[in-house]
Amino acid sequence: TTLHFDLDGKKLQYTGVSEEIARLVEELKRRGVDLKEIVRILEELLK
């Protein structure tokens, strides 16, 4: 799965993300978590 974000005018793309992580990101968005925080979490998970 590939995730795309537009953060402060920067286009971020994460490829090869598992379905689980993609679902987690969608859930965080639904809960109103700040996009910067979501990206920070995502980068930690993908290390």
Rank of each mutant, 00 (worst) to 15 (best):
L46Q: 04
L35T: 15
G16A: 08
I41D: 03
L42S: 00
K11S: 10
E44Y: 09
R23I: 14
V33F: 07
L42K: 00
G9Y: 02
F5V: 04
A22C: 11
L7Q: 04
Y14T: 00
V25T: 05
R40P: 05
K29A: 14
T15K: 08
E44M: 09
E43F: 02
R40K: 15
K10L: 13
L24M: 13
R40W: 09
V17W: 01
K11L: 08
G16F: 07
L24W: 08
Q13I: 12
Q13Y: 10
E37Y: 06
L45C: 15
I38Y: 00
E27I: 06
D34V: 10
Q13C: 06
S18L: 03
D8C: 04
G32Y: 05
Y14C: 01
K29E: 13
T15Y: 09
E20W: 05
I38P: 00
E27D: 15
K10H: 13
E20M: 05
R30S: 13
Q13F: 13
E44I: 10
A22F: 11
L24K: 15
L35S: 10
V17I: 09
L35A: 09
V33D: 08
D6Y: 10
L35D: 11
E20P: 11
L24A: 14
T15V: 13
E20D: 12
R30L: 14
R23P: 02
R23G: 15
R40Y: 14
I21S: 05
E26I: 08
D6N: 06
K36W: 10
K10S: 12
I41S: 06
S18T: 11
Q13H: 10
E26T: 11
K11P: 12
E27A: 08
L24N: 12
E27K: 07
E27N: 09
L28Q: 06
T1M: 15
R40C: 03
V25L: 06
G16K: 06
E44R: 06
K29S: 13
I21D: 10
R40S: 12
L24F: 09
G9F: 03
D8M: 03
K47V: 13
F5A: 01
V25H: 02
E44H: 12
S18D: 06
T15G: 07
L46F: 06
V39P: 01
L35E: 13
G32K: 03
V33R: 06
T15C: 05
G16E: 08
D8N: 06
Y14P: 00
A22K: 07
Y14A: 01
L45A: 15
R23K: 15
Q13E: 15
E26D: 13
E43M: 04
L46R: 03
K11N: 12
K11W: 12
E44F: 07
V17A: 03
V39W: 02
L7G: 01
L35C: 06
V39S: 02
L46W: 04
I41K: 06
S18E: 05
L7I: 14
R40L: 08
K11V: 13
R40H: 11
I21Q: 12
E43W: 02
D8K: 01
R23D: 13
I21N: 11
T15L: 09
T2D: 14
G32C: 08
F5Q: 01
T15A: 11
L12Q: 05
L28T: 02
Q13M: 14
H4P: 02
I38E: 00
V17C: 02
S18R: 05
H4K: 06
E43C: 00
I41E: 07
L3Y: 03
H4G: 05
K10F: 10
H4C: 03
T2C: 05
K29L: 12
F5T: 01
V39R: 03
L45N: 11
S18P: 12
R31K: 15
Y14W: 06
H4D: 13
F5G: 01
G16D: 09
G9Q: 02
K10A: 11
R31Q: 15
A22I: 12
D6V: 08
K11M: 11
Y14D: 00
K10T: 15
E27R: 07
T1Y: 15
L45E: 13
L12M: 09
K11F: 09
E43D: 12
L24Q: 15
T15I: 10
E26K: 07
D6I: 07
L42R: 00
D6R: 01
L24E: 15
V25R: 00
D34R: 05
E26W: 08
L7D: 05
R31W: 07
L46G: 03
K47R: 11
R30Q: 15
K36N: 13
D34W: 05
Y14F: 12
E37L: 07
D8T: 01
G32T: 03
E26C: 05
L24I: 14
D6A: 02
I21L: 06
E26N: 08
L46C: 05
E37F: 05
L12R: 02
L3N: 01
E19M: 13
T1D: 07
L12V: 15
F5I: 08
E43L: 05
T15N: 13
V33N: 06
H4E: 15
K29M: 14
R30M: 14
K10G: 08
E27Y: 05
L3V: 08
R31N: 15
G9H: 03
K29W: 11
V39L: 10
I38L: 08
D6H: 07
V25C: 03
K11C: 06
K29C: 12
H4L: 11
L45V: 12
R30G: 15
E37G: 05
T2N: 08
V33Y: 09
D34P: 09
G32V: 04
K36A: 11
A22G: 15
T1H: 15
T2F: 04
G9K: 02
S18Q: 06
E19A: 11
R23N: 14
K47G: 12
D8P: 02
E37W: 04
L35Y: 06
R30C: 06
L28D: 01
L24S: 12
K10Y: 11
T1S: 13
G16I: 04
S18C: 01
I41H: 08
Q13A: 12
T15W: 07
L3P: 01
I41Y: 09
D8E: 10
F5C: 01
V25F: 04
D8I: 01
K36S: 11
L46M: 08
Q13K: 13
D6M: 07
I21M: 10
E20F: 04
L45T: 11
E19L: 09
E43Q: 06
V39M: 05
I21F: 07
R23E: 13
K10C: 05
E19K: 11
I38T: 04
E37K: 06
E26A: 14
K36H: 14
G32I: 03
L12H: 08
V25E: 00
F5S: 01
K47M: 15
A22H: 09
A22S: 13
V33A: 07
